[in-house]
Design a protein around this nucleic acid. Sequence first.
DNA 1: TAGTGGTCTAGACCACCCC
DNA 2: GGGTGGTCTAGACCACTAG
Lengths: 260, 260
Amino acid sequence: MRTKRQSSETIPTNQNPVEKSSAPLYRQLAETLQLHMESGKIAPNEPLPAERDLAISFKVSRDTVRKAIRLLEERGVLYSDHGRGTFAAPAAVRQMSRFLDSFSEDTLKRGGTPGQKILSMENVAANMAIASLLHVEAHVPLMRIRRLRLMDDAVVGLQDSYLHLPQGARLERKELERAGSLYRLLIDKFSIEPSESLESVGAIAASADDALLLGVGPGTPLLVCERVMLSDRREPIEYCEMKYVPSYRYKTRINKWSNG
Amino acid sequence: MRTKRQSSETIPTNQNPVEKSSAPLYRQLAETLQLHMESGKIAPNEPLPAERDLAISFKVSRDTVRKAIRLLEERGVLYSDHGRGTFAAPAAVRQMSRFLDSFSEDTLKRGGTPGQKILSMENVAANMAIASLLHVEAHVPLMRIRRLRLMDDAVVGLQDSYLHLPQGARLERKELERAGSLYRLLIDKFSIEPSESLESVGAIAASADDALLLGVGPGTPLLVCERVMLSDRREPIEYCEMKYVPSYRYKTRINKWSNG
DNA sequence: TAGTGGTCTAGACCACCCC
DNA sequence: GGGTGGTCTAGACCACTAG
């Protein structure tokens, strides 16, 4: 009999070791592990089996196990400590995404129903400030989209996007209404893959216009978030300013000391 | 002569391949690569040498090169595209941390001088709300620290921390004043290593008290950030509420689609 | 089709934590 | 001392991109 640390249970190895789709092994393994932990089999801060044991159970190399663990660590599902072991993360951590989701995703994750009301879509000439952010010449045509964002039919935010689309690209109001998500549309229609965004968050008083649209009093404190979105080629694609009513909050999880 | 893609230049391999300290090889390599890129030898969006070539140049395995690249990718220094290559990131990305820094670090990074004025340090009994967040019984003694945060001698924020310290731990005002950073003190004095934090960001109107302390008018919109900080054992250590004047902004970089 | 990054393996040794 | 995660290697093959 092995004299090693007992982890709560062995994880069922699914007969055929891992496979189900053609996704990389380590992703399939991560999926399996995550499901196993979400089903509550391993209590928060309780250890998983050791990496070497997982490798044997699932008939993969230890390196593949480690890749799966790194992925779940990013998702906040578990964490590893040198010399101690790998542990299930507390629920509070697991529930919080490390990445700011799109409005739609974020709302869904909160258990709400996302919605939008398109206020306007028009072609405008870039002013100097926005041209500089998007790395284009001033007066280049941009598509400006103004939207109200709804959560469970209540107005929570106001988005003002400036898109730098490829030459001749056209975007219809109907398409956006149908897609629901602007980024979904960029991917599907133009093969533009958002990869990274630079954000700046602050507080601002609602202008008369803002107040009217958001249904709050003028001067109400709003959460304002500016974003420059980059494509996979790191070209600036979109500048967006978002204003949210005080009841709306950004939530995020941060690894404090990940940097070397 | 090799007929492969030309990267702008080969990277000087530092005679003795990499070593200088006893840090892991991949970290040393990352450091070398980062310095080389920050010196502007590779223009934004220009390719680095291929992983296999870097491995040969630096006399390390390809896997070690890949680990260094992953690290620099997290720091926003470069990015890799499957089948295309590895590229220097645009300056705008490189400058933005993916991790919310502590106030001191953040201020330094912006080129400012961080400061603090301790308003009060006292032992208080946990109320139900805070007890619940910190996973302690109500009425457990906590240390409450209220501080003004300064940037270049100007008041920009108000922090209100509740610390759950180990039994009998004592914290003197002088120590905190000397250390400058609360987290630095936790590490050095109590071996408490902050590892992760859960944050919630919103907007709020300045109360009369807030306004007085921050030197703004009552009702001024403030950026408010609540945080629960976890130790390396994932025990909640601190609850902190931070309020910032409108001129102060959080900046961060987000990998939009890192999740699977 | 050639070159690139992405995945996977099997094994070795080191660094750390705890009994 | 014995178990754990962390680093490192050398080599193989796959998947994607581009000329």
